[in-house]
Simulated scan of single mutants.
Amino acid sequence: MGERWQAVDDYIADKLLGADDALAATLSNNEKQGLPPIDVSAAQGKMLFLLAQIAGANRILEVGTLGGYSTIWLARALPDDGRLVTLELEPHHARVARENLERAGVSDKVDIRIGSAADSLGAMAKGDPFDFVFIDADKQSNAHYVAEAIRLGRSGTTIVVDNVVREGGVLEADSDDERIVGTRALFDMLSADPRLDATAVQTVGAKKWDGFVLARVR
């Protein structure tokens, strides 16, 4: 079944996305530099691009840069005066991301901040709100990251969280996997927080069986 999922993703990318030299070069550079191959798929990247545009985003926050693949998709969704702040724990990943963003021609729109995402978020004063937030970092902290996204957002801010199904692992109430524990805590938080409207969508494809949380600040 996994091969068929990959084939359908390839079909979607061929029909609806086409070739993209900058994104292909980003994935190639990530591999050469030893980054883990955990970027969103091409179809998912285009989904993020469209969601950010639909939200009319002028300011975007990304938690988890890796090599900048999703960052490029999101930066492309911004208007000329738009800005994107992306948070990355690993300095090596951030250096690779800077190379990729420069090659893709979007580095002028992106501010990469290195360090613990919790620390970076905590240091941000509430100023001009973020219109769109994409969270794809350590799953243990997802509930905290969403709470910070609410604080730094506004009514109408869109929040997207990746990897929330984990091949069905989210159902394992007795799991000792910190990623599953953190994901279940995220769902508990979403179900209890009156400031959010939220749902989750399962996905299959090149990234196997997983899913996204889609939420909007009331």
Rank of each mutant, 00 (worst) to 15 (best):
S70G: 05
V201I: 10
T183H: 12
F49A: 00
A143F: 07
D10M: 09
A94V: 13
E31V: 15
L23N: 02
A77M: 00
I12C: 13
D177W: 03
K207S: 11
V201S: 02
D128R: 03
T199E: 07
S175W: 13
S70Q: 15
T157R: 03
P79E: 02
I12M: 14
D188T: 01
T65M: 05
D20W: 14
R166D: 11
I114Q: 04
V146T: 11
G168H: 10
E99C: 02
R184G: 03
V161K: 14
N58I: 05
V8R: 02
L23Q: 08
T203D: 00
G205C: 15
H144T: 13
R218S: 05
L121E: 08
A149T: 06
A206K: 14
V204A: 13
V96M: 05
D197K: 08
G153A: 08
A55R: 14
M1N: 14
M1T: 10
G169W: 05
F134G: 00
L35P: 03
L152N: 02
G56E: 14
V8P: 15
V165W: 12
F212A: 00
V146Q: 01
K109E: 07
M124L: 06
D20C: 15
V110D: 15
D108Y: 09
G115M: 15
K109T: 10
A206I: 12
G205D: 10
T65R: 14
A192C: 11
Q44Y: 07
Q140L: 11
D197Q: 07
L89F: 15
E3T: 08
L87K: 12
A55Q: 11
G45S: 01
S41L: 04
R76L: 14
I72D: 13
V106D: 04
M1S: 10
G64M: 06
I159H: 14
V106Y: 04
Q33N: 04
K109S: 06
Y145D: 01
G127T: 15
S107H: 10
A22V: 09
L101W: 15
V217S: 04
L23A: 01
D177Q: 11
Y69G: 01
F132L: 00
D14K: 07
D14G: 10
R76I: 02
L66S: 05
N30E: 13
L27Y: 12
D136E: 07
F212D: 00
Q33L: 14
E102G: 08
K109I: 02
E102D: 07
Y11S: 01
G2Y: 13
D21A: 05
A192I: 12
A125D: 05
N142L: 04
G2S: 08
E31A: 08
S107V: 09
A24G: 07
V213I: 02
R95D: 02
G45A: 05
P129L: 08
T86S: 14
V181S: 02
R83K: 12
S191Q: 03
A75H: 11
H93C: 13
L84Y: 02
I54V: 05
E31C: 07
P129V: 10
I60P: 12
A22Y: 05
V161R: 12
S116I: 08
S175L: 09
I150L: 04
D188V: 04
D138Y: 10
S107M: 09
Q44W: 00
Q33C: 09
E172F: 07
L214K: 02
L48G: 00
